[in-house]
Structure formats: structure tokens, C-alpha cells
Design a protein around this nucleic acid. Structure first.
Lengths: 142, 142
DNA sequence: GTAGGTGATGTTATATCATTACATCGCGTT
DNA sequence: AACGCGATGTAATGATATAACATCACCTAC
């Protein structure tokens, strides 16, 4: 603890994770759509995970570390796709309701707009959720 | 049905609502914080509502009509505070985690930013959620 | 005015998502 | 050896949401 970090985003590498945390993270990273905690549990019951809490605890830690995002509108989770997990503020998600794909988007205009809003309302945000549900490029064709 | 409406937002007045829908809407409108479906059910069990589905069905209809919003990050609902419920796109919510107050915000810069994002990603949004959780002006003082 | 359509209602049961409570274990520090 | 501390395992429960089915009220068409 050297005092240089304002946030607790240590950005632990996968090697720092416990067994349960690794299992959960690998499952999310290997999925091509968001997974619920119970989806993850189903996929890991061969590895010895039997209770929801084992998954939820791992997810809590991974969320803390910024390695996983929670999609509020789905009650589901995705692995962070950011190269290096650079920014952990004002990420927007474009979620396809047809194929389940999720695009993770950072945009400075969006950050600016949200920042302006909070300033003028004198609101101090702790966590911001931006989720767009609709159809991705591929699925609009169909 | 005159064909002039692209959307199905008939903006029914309260007088067009059924008994259950009115009860649910009035409960939400009278609350000073978001309520879950079960919160609403608890407050209305004196009026003859006994099953969750009675509340969820009323909420579905009120959501369709644009008279109520769902807050995804809380799994809860609020009455729309827009004068006349003018715009039903890209509304942002500032939710105080301390006192539970919810500010409903529309901002053209935000709409523009989201629009730009969806254009460049060729994403067709059906519903957009923007929720900021944090501390309102009043509660920052404490 | 009666047959049928449509949307709201009531009720039971069940599915889905998440946490509380408590005992235990591994491991580094004192 | 004793302790602190974070992770783990397990059972039970709480909280949110929907499925399935029967019925009712009202409007419209014939």
C-alpha cells in the first residue's frame, strides 16, 4: 500500500486470481454473450462449484478489479473487452437482443455530456450505467 | 386509430386507466422514491391486490403508455415526472443512493452523443438506459 | 340479442436472481 | 503456537418475475 492509488483498481493479472475467480473469469471470457450467475454455475458444476454464492463471490471480486462488467438490464455479466481495461468510467454497452452480442463503447462526447449533466444538477455520480438494447449491424439484415 | 401515430404512446389520461392500473400509478406518483413491484403490492393489499402478477400487468401497461419508468439498476419503478411526458427517448436518471430521490433528465448533448455512437456502430437501439447512481446535492452535505 | 373477439382480472404455482448466516480452511505474521 | 484475514463450502432463505389456466366485462358483427 504505497498511497499512489486513488482507486482500488489494482488490475490484478489472471495469475493473481483464486481458483474460483479464474474459473468464473475464463467462463465469461470464453462466452460469446452475457451470462447470468446461474449460467456460469451450470457451466462450472463439473469443476466443483455447486452453490450460487461461490459464483457471486467471484463475480464481486472481478467487478471490484474491473475485469468484469454487470449488465443491469439483463442481470448478467460480461468479461471486460477493453485492451488493458484502460478506462472504467462511463462505458456504454450496445446489446443485441437478437444474437446477444455486446459491444463495449467508450466515447468522449458521451462522457462530456454526462459530466455536464452531473455538474449542472450538482450530482456526484458513483457509478454510471449506459445500456442500449436493440439490433446489431448483422442482425438488422435478417 | 387514425394512423397518425408512429408510436403507440397514446398518452392515456388517468381516466383511461383500469382500476388496477390507476391504483399502481397513484401509488408510484405518491411515492418519493422508486418502488419495487412488491413494495407496490404491499401498499395495495388493502385495495384487493393480492398477487404479484396484478402489479406486474399494470406496470407493463403503464410502461407501454410511457407513464412509468423502470430503473434497471434498482429493479424498481417511478412515475414519469415529465410535464406532459413529452419525450420518451434517452432519458437519464440521477438516483441518490442515500435518500432515494430520482431526478429525470433530458439533455440534447446526451441524445446527440448516443446517436453518434449508434450511427458509427450501425446499431439500431430499441431502448436505451442511462442511470447514474450517486449522491444528490442535498446528501453530499451530510 | 346472441355469438364471438379482445383485453383485463384472479389465482396458483413456479422460475429466476441474489443474499444471510455460519462453520471451516489456508496462509502469512507476530 | 496464536492470531488475523480473506477465501471457501453449504444450507436456507429472500427478492424479483413469469407461466398457465380459468373467468369476466365490454364491444362489435351479424
Amino acid at each position: 500500500m504505497n498511497g499512489d492509488h486513488h482507486h482500488e483498481h489494482a488490475h490484478a493479472a489472471r495469475s493473481d486470481l483464486t481458483r474460483n475467480q479464474s474459473l468464473v473469469f475464463d467462463t465469461l471470457e470464453g462466452a460469446d454473450a452475457p451470462l447470468t450467475a446461474y449460467n456460469i454455475l451450470d457451466r462450472l458444476n463439473g469443476e466443483g462449484l455447486r452453490a450460487p454464492l461461490q459464483v457471486y463471490r467471484a463475480l464481486d471480486k472481478l467487478l471490484d478489479l474491473g475485469m468484469v462488467h454487470r449488465l443491469e438490464s439483463l442481470n448478467a455479466f460480461v468479461a471486460c473487452r477493453h485492451p488493458g481495461c484502460a478506462t472504467h468510467e462511463a462505458v456504454a454497452f450496445a446489446i443485441c437482443d437478437d444474437c446477444g452480442s455486446v459491444a463495449e463503447i467508450t466515447d468522449s462526447s458521451l462522457v462530456d455530456a454526462l459530466d455536464t449533466i452531473t455538474r449542472s444538477a450538482d450530482f456526484k455520480p458513483r457509478k454510471t450505467t449506459v445500456e442500449m438494447r436493440g439490433l446489431c449491424s448483422d442482425c438488422q439484415a435478417a
